[in-house]
Design a protein around this nucleic acid. Structure first.
Lengths: 229, 229
DNA sequence: ATCGAACTTAAGGATAGTTTCAAAATAGCG
DNA sequence: CGCTATTTTGAAACTATCCTTAAGTTCGAT
């Protein structure tokens, strides 16, 4: 938003055309841009110039883009936006797992690029959330891991708490079954949506006024659940 | 809108007459116009001159117009308006599937051409997709996966939401039935256009002021649907 | 005008998904 | 080690959503 401090970005890409496209687009929006042609040089540049964010093409000749990312993550949380071609799903996922903050599929429009970059840098600067969240007469105290209902403490089991906390973190948004399962039970339980259903029932019985007509913990059939806040 | 920056357009057409007609009409409205006689030359011109949009005739002698489009889409999302004769439904659909942004049937009036071109460029300039899209009194919050109508939340089923979100993503441009079916139901449901019709009816009943005279969700008979935004 | 293709709309049954209860397995704690 | 709390598993009833069928409508073409 503030054009005086949009920040410096490092583009790591071996194709000159793409580098030029990125430079033009980003400088047009007020960012300063540095370039590196290989992963090796990119890592050096990061250490030397300390940019505010990195745009990393996954199709690099020397190091695999994912490797660059892994190495970087050994010592830095610098925001990284990853670039890939549509087909490379595998690579994209590997990159996200290795700590990429976002990805963009080639070909992309200038507007989309800028939006992603903005989001990338914004996220990096503000990720603090208050410790106590309130939803009607329910409150979640994340600092002490306690849930209260009209002031009274409600005992939740580990899974119940994890579920509630995750939904609370995304208050108002639908959280997919897959996401819930992956975060709480791990990646290999992604199909056991039954777990979710059972624990959701328990949660409702502890937190809802009328458990069978929930006002707080809503179902989105075949998608996921959502906490109304 | 702003006559000082209407942009440069590349016309790719083998018929001199049509090129002249387009040039006159577009320059009259303040656009700068470049021309290319074949698909081959057109692609070169795009790479060299970087126009803001392309008007592509599908009836080219060297490359099939659809091929030109496919090649272009390998590296660019440049807005493309496609020109075809009324009879060539197949080709038109193929072009839209290959990534054309809009189409115009020959013969066409100058006013219609200009309106489409304006829409084409406007759309391209604002593809910094914000999380919340607005269409009249309807808003689509993609982050939360929620749709509101005059502020009130409207509940959409999974299919309805997918359909609406897909159309919204391509606001203003026709999305082919095939595209919709493939994206939402999967590749093997490409013929069941009836699914679309039923769910579109439901969507209209939830979102339109007068469901049987839709202002938002328009039908393009035998092509697809289009969300006016 | 009439026809046909494509579309809209309504309604019921089929299906996929959800809730709920309860019992079996597991984990955690004294 | 045994007890309890928790989680997982299983089964049944229930519900929302989706698909299908069928009738009516629109619109361009013959």
């Amino acid at each position: 938003m503030n054009p005086s401090t949009p920040g410096t970005l490092l583009v790591i890409d071996d194709e000159r055309q793409i580098r030029r496209l990125l430079r033009v687009t980003l400088e047009g929006a007020g960012y300063r841009v540095r370039e590196a042609e290989t992963g090796q040089l990119g890592l050096q540049e990061i250490a030397a110039a300390a940019p505010d964010g990195v745009i990393l093409d996954l199709g690099l000749p020397d190091l695999d883009g994912v490797d660059v990312l892994r190495r970087l993550r050994e010592w830095s949380r610098l925001p990284v936006l990853v670039l890939s071609v549509r087909e490379a799903e595998e690579v994209k996922i590997a990159a996200l797992d290795a700590g990429a903050d976002d990805y963009l599929t080639k070909p992309f429009g200038g507007g989309e690029l800028l939006a992603r970059v903005r989001a990338l840098l914004r996220r990096a600067s503000t990720d603090a959330e208050p410790a106590i969240l309130r939803f009607g007469d329910i409150e979640l105290d994340r600092a002490s891991r306690v849930v209260r209902r009209s002031g009274e403490e409600v005992h939740l089991t580990a899974k119940e708490y994890a579920l509630f906390a995750l939904l609370a973190q995304h208050r108002g948004k639908v959280v997919t079954q897959r996401q819930l399962l992956r975060d709480i039970w791990g990646a290999n339980a992604e199909d056991n949506s039954h777990y979710l259903r059972v624990h959701m029932t328990h949660l409702r019985q502890k937190l809802e006024r009328h458990p069978s007509a929930p006002e707080l913990l809503k179902t989105e059939p075949s998608i996921g659940y959502r906490l109304i806040g």
